[in-house]
């Protein structure tokens, strides 16, 4: 194996570039992350557990994970609708809306945060009509939810869009000619074909929303146990010099991130395997 690989290396620079890559990767990414895990290992199991099971920590984790999952689900549904409209239909402004999907990705999170807050504040453009209906968004958990939806939209759209574009038109025609209604074709043929991409988009949107900080903290209200997200609690613990607490929460969040990455990798491999050689 390695002998064959070595012979295939006709181009120069493998040793040098690989060495530099691994060194740089270690210095910037791996050593700092390892430092975090080492730090969390300094805690005894009881300490670790005491930190995580404190009411405030538990609530912060519950708020972050719960709302992030909810927002990712909204993104899954709305993202699919947006992808369908962008790929399948022609309407005025389609290309502009296609480009606009990336705004949450490109807009600095602090800017998104202040803008969403002003928009949904009680006197804001959307906040005022919503307040008239008795719905309060800014400075409530609902505000966190809105910010997380904002931040996750491009992830679902950009993972599903290319797959829908490449979907073989013949499979829809085949389903139709076999007597399936449009709805049956949608549920039984198109949806399963998009499933790996949909789940990948869901996972990516979820991962992003869980860790999101900038766009959330302005609109959240940051009331402990009610609207305080886990990343904010890390920052608060740091400013109180309670490094152990910050590290423990961060470790839990990192582990979840790794699980999501692993899941996404598996999903991609599954999709590749299933769709191989058509």
């Amino acid at each position: 194996m390695s002998a064959i690989a070595a012979r295939r290396r006709t181009l120069p620079g493998f040793g040098l570039t690989m060495g530099l890559t691994l060194t740089w990767l270690s210095v910037i990414i791996l050593i700092p992350l390892a430092g975090l895990f080492l730090k969390s290992l300094e805690l005894s199991l009881e300490q670790f557990w005491a930190i995580l099971s404190s009411r405030r920590t538990l609530n912060a984790l519950r708020i972050s994970f719960g709302l992030a999952f909810g927002a990712a689900c909204v993104n899954l549904v709305m993202g699919s609708i947006i992808v369908w409209a962008l790929v399948r239909y022609r309407f005025p402004g389609r290309r502009i809306f296609d480009a606009i999907v990336d705004v949450p990705f490109a807009l600095p999170t602090a800017v998104a945060g202040v803008a969403l807050t002003a928009l949904f504040a009680e006197k804001g453009w959307l906040g005022a009509p919503l307040a008239a209906l008795g719905i309060k968004v800014a400075f409530t958990p609902l505000g966190i939810f809105v910010a997380m939806i904002f931040i996750g939209i491009p992830f679902v759209v950009r993972t599903v869009q290319p797959v829908l574009q490449d979907l073989d038109p013949e499979i829809e025609e085949a389903a139709g000619s076999l007597g399936a209604s449009r709805w049956q074709t949608m549920i039984r043929v198109i949806l399963p074909s998009l499933a790996p991409a949909l789940l990948t988009g869901l996972a990516l949107a979820f991962a992003r929303a869980v860790g999101e900080y900038g766009s959330v903290i302005f609109i959240a209200g940051n009331l402990p146990n009610v609207s305080e997200i886990a990343p904010l609690l890390i920052v608060i613990r740091l400013s109180e010099f309670r490094y152990a607490d910050a590290t423990a929460i961060a470790a839990v969040m990192l582990v979840v991130s790794f699980i999501v990455i692993f899941a996404v990798n598996r999903l991609q491999r599954w999709a590749q395997h299933r769709d191989a050689e058509r």
Binding site: A174, G176, S177, A180, S193
Partner: peptide
């Protein structure tokens, strides 16, 4: 096509991969 009861075999088969 749904009501014509016509069997159609596609050039690239269009089998449902899932």
């Amino acid at each position: 096509a749904r009501e014509r009861h016509v069997g159609f075999v596609f050039q690239h088969y269009a089998l449902f991969r899932h």
